[in-house]
Amino acid sequence: MLVVWTFVVNVTQTFYQAEENHNITLDWTFTTKPDTSSNSLFIYCGLITGRKTLYDLQRGVEVSESQDQQFLGRVQFDKDVLREGRIRLQLSRLRTEDSGLYLCKVKTDYGGNAGECRLNVTVQQLHTDTSGLKLSRTRRGCFTLNMMKMIFRILQLINLIACVSGTFVVNVTQTIFQAEENHNITLDWTFTTKPQSSISSLNILCSLFLNREILVLLHLHDGVEVSESQDQQFSGRVQFDKDVLREGRIRLQLSRLRTEDSGLYLCEVKTDDGISMKEWRLNVTAADQLKPQRPTVSPEPESQGWIGLYVGLGLTAAAVLLVTLCFALRRRFTKSTDKTENPSSVV
Score class of each variant (00 low, 15 high):
2 L>S: 07
4 V>S: 12
6 T>R: 15
6 T>D: 15
10 N>F: 05
11 V>F: 06
12 T>K: 15
13 Q>I: 00
13 Q>H: 15
17 Q>T: 11
19 E>A: 03
24 I>F: 06
25 T>C: 05
31 T>F: 09
33 K>V: 03
35 D>Y: 15
36 T>V: 00
38 S>Q: 14
43 I>A: 06
50 G>P: 00
53 T>I: 15
57 L>M: 12
59 R>H: 12
60 G>N: 02
66 S>Q: 11
75 V>C: 06
75 V>Y: 08
83 R>G: 15
83 R>I: 13
84 E>S: 11
84 E>G: 04
87 I>N: 03
88 R>S: 14
91 L>H: 02
101 L>C: 14
102 Y>V: 01
111 G>H: 13
111 G>S: 06
119 L>W: 05
121 V>A: 08
121 V>C: 04
131 S>E: 10
135 L>T: 09
142 C>Q: 14
143 F>D: 10
144 T>V: 01
147 M>W: 06
149 K>D: 07
155 L>M: 11
158 I>G: 02
159 N>S: 10
164 V>G: 06
165 S>I: 07
170 V>H: 09
173 T>I: 09
185 I>P: 07
186 T>N: 11
190 T>W: 05
190 T>H: 10
193 T>W: 09
194 K>L: 06
194 K>G: 01
199 I>C: 04
206 C>S: 09
209 F>E: 07
211 N>P: 01
219 H>V: 00
221 H>V: 05
223 G>R: 04
225 E>Q: 06
227 S>N: 10
228 E>I: 02
230 Q>G: 00
232 Q>H: 10
232 Q>D: 08
232 Q>C: 09
233 Q>G: 01
235 S>Q: 14
236 G>D: 02
237 R>L: 07
242 K>Q: 11
244 V>R: 04
245 L>K: 10
249 R>M: 11
250 I>A: 01
254 L>Q: 06
256 R>H: 13
256 R>T: 00
268 E>N: 10
271 T>K: 03
276 S>I: 04
277 M>P: 00
278 K>M: 13
280 W>H: 11
281 R>C: 10
282 L>D: 08
286 A>G: 12
287 A>G: 06
287 A>W: 15
287 A>D: 13
292 P>I: 04
296 T>Q: 15
301 P>T: 02
301 P>I: 02
306 W>F: 14
308 G>P: 00
309 L>N: 02
310 Y>L: 12
310 Y>N: 08
312 G>Q: 05
314 G>I: 00
314 G>L: 11
326 C>L: 05
330 R>G: 02
332 R>S: 07
334 T>I: 09
335 K>Q: 09
336 S>A: 12
